[in-house]
Design a protein around this nucleic acid. Structure first.
Lengths: 201, 201
DNA sequence: GATTTACGGTACTCGCCGTACCTTAATTGC
DNA sequence: GCAATTAAGGTACGGCGAGTACCGTAAATC
């Protein structure tokens, strides 16, 4: 069917699913989520919308699935100092959010609105506020005596990335200037995790 | 035209504009932004879409204008202690985001996506991360010696509300449990602004 | 009273999601 | 191997809502 004349191969199951996902990924990178239409994906995959709707309940779910194909995890940095690690993590995130891929992520987050299930799938993606790398980094800093043990807490550890994220999501910034990252680190994050004064409570 | 038979009064200018906005507000409160359609607003205002599009460029702009009618500003609390003030500010915000009005705000933020001009209009609305009340509150605390003067900085002062906002926008939570607010205050905000240790840099 | 402005009415285009229904190929079971 | 079952392909539509176009007509302006 793909090539008339060639042995008419009608794809099924996993093969077809991969083809659809590939097509969705391509559409997503070319046109963003806004331009991702079910008809175009179907056409590109050489199939029709039925096959898609049999696998994903709606456009958003397909978009998220396609995004997850694209996103790749990078290992957390280890520069030897907390400040270096944190700045590098923020810079990585900043680059990601500023990239085309980041733009897509923002579109998806926007489209997901308050749909928690789907939101959760995006949560732990690169560039987003995944807690794991922050806890790792901060754990090393605590071991080196650069941070207070009380800081080893998801809410505290992720403060920096949440603030950066706020710049994007809330203020619609295309790219955060590096000053902002430095300010977040020096004015907020380091004073917080060092916490040399008496602890609260 | 409103009432056939009555003196046919055709509204113009400000009168018509107010009627449209009132209709939009009503639709917004009844059906949320998702249910706010131009046709329904026009019908409710007893006019047609032309009159709306002459005043607002698109649905989102109308939605935001209508929301701004609804939102009201509350004076910042003054409980005498920083912890009390901050907790109260967070609780106010939590109530607002959890209320129907807050749901509408979330819809609008989601719909605004990365459109900075429109985003800016929502920024300083009640419940959102407006910097002013936080600086006021923190200023009083500094005067009382409860907080370090270096903390009197928008990025630092608004950390608490940004974190709470993150709970909603990112995690899609309907209401943040009070524990979370307390945690934000005691684990993050107070340690940060007290900053009893040596300042960075 | 004539001219300009803007409202009301209506109808339409367009895009695109999601569904329905049927035909036909591939797979599975016997 | 052959029948029964499952899943693709093809196509057509319903539905909805945004935004636009046009035109006749009331209200403001001068």
């Amino acid at each position: 069917m793909r090539q008339p004349g060639a042995g008419q191969t009608r794809r099924r199951g996993a093969a077809l699913e991969e083809a659809i996902l590939r097509a969705a990924v391509d559409e997503l990178t070319e046109s963003g989520y806004a331009g991702l239409t079910m008809d175009k994906v179907a056409a590109r995959a050489g199939t029709n919308k039925n096959a898609i709707y049999r696998r994903w309940p709606n456009r958003l779910a397909l978009g998220i699935a396609a995004y997850r194909q694209l996103a790749t995890t990078v290992p957390p940095p280890d520069t030897g100092s907390l400040r270096g690690d944190v700045l590098e993590l923020l810079r990585q995130a900043n680059r990601h959010w500023s990239s085309p891929l980041g733009a897509i992520l923002r579109e998806l987050l926007s489209a997901a609105g308050g749909t928690s299930e789907l939101l959760a799938q995006l949560q732990e993606q690169p560039g987003d506020a995944a807690a794991a790398p922050w806890l790792t980094t901060l754990g090393r800093a605590v071991a080196r005596g650069e941070a207070a043990p009380e800081a080893l807490h998801p809410r505290v550890a992720t403060v920096a990335i949440v603030l950066l994220r706020n710049e994007f999501v809330v203020r619609g910034v295309p790219t955060a200037p590096d000053d902002v990252l430095v300010e977040i680190v020096d004015e907020v994050y380091l004073p917080l995790v060092r916490r040399l004064g008496p602890s609260p409570s």
